[in-house]
Simulated scan of single mutants.
Amino acid sequence: MLKFDEVITSDKDGSIVLTDGYTSRANSIGKRSAAVTGGFESVSHSTGVFSISTALGDKSKAFADGDSAISAVSGEKSWSTTDGYYSISGNTGNISSSVSNGESSISANTGYRGEADCRGNDSVAITTGDNSVSIATGQHSVSIALGINGSARAALGSFIILGEYDENHLINIKSFLVDGDKVKPDTYYSLKDGQLYGERW
């Protein structure tokens, strides 16, 4: 059984790194590897190709730098980021951020007042939490905000998809092309009364 605050590090191919301690760290550099933490204020970092990095504790961070990697956190005020191509960054914590830098990647956030930021081309950013923000700055991408009072921003030539609510009931979903004329690339948009409303950032 792992002890609290235990640190386990591996740089071998096919390796697995685990720790369940408070303020703990897990680091995996090998290919096809996994780094997992379950403690509060913990850090999970995996730089291997086809790797998985998971941090479950509050105020935790998860990083996966390898191609085709997955980085996921579920703690509040947490951070999840991936840099590899075809990778996934996911976050379910409130007031948290999910960032994906690789092309053809996905950044998803389901927490309240969360942020999904997708910076690579041909990628998707999606938020479902209330008062959340979805950002897609890469070319040919999609920014989706389906939570109550959600907003989305995307690059020129990309699409935004927005949801509208009547109290707690989803009543409308619309998509818009960021054409640079009616829909600007430097503006956060939300959907109200079926109309598009924008606010420059």
Rank of each mutant, 00 (worst) to 15 (best):
K3C: 08
I8D: 07
T9M: 12
K12H: 00
K12W: 01
G14Y: 02
G14I: 09
V17P: 01
Y22E: 14
I29N: 05
K31P: 09
R32F: 12
R32Y: 10
R32D: 15
E41T: 14
S42H: 06
V43S: 05
V43L: 10
V43C: 02
H45D: 08
S46R: 07
G48I: 01
I52E: 00
A55F: 02
G57V: 01
D58W: 04
A62D: 04
D65N: 15
G66M: 06
A69W: 02
I70Y: 13
S71E: 01
A72I: 14
E76I: 13
S80Q: 05
D83S: 15
S89Q: 02
T92M: 09
S97C: 10
N101G: 07
G102V: 02
E103Y: 07
E103W: 06
A108G: 13
T110W: 04
T110F: 12
G111N: 08
G120C: 12
N121V: 03
D122N: 10
S123W: 09
T127A: 10
D130N: 15
D130I: 12
S132V: 01
V133T: 08
I135S: 00
A136E: 03
V142C: 06
I144Y: 08
G150H: 14
A152D: 05
R153V: 09
A154Y: 02
A155P: 05
L156Y: 14
S158F: 03
L162I: 08
G163V: 00
E164A: 14
N168H: 11
N168W: 08
H169R: 15
H169S: 15
I173S: 05
L177H: 06
V178D: 03
D179I: 04
L191R: 10
L196I: 08
Y197Q: 13
G198M: 11
G198F: 06
E199V: 13
E199F: 06
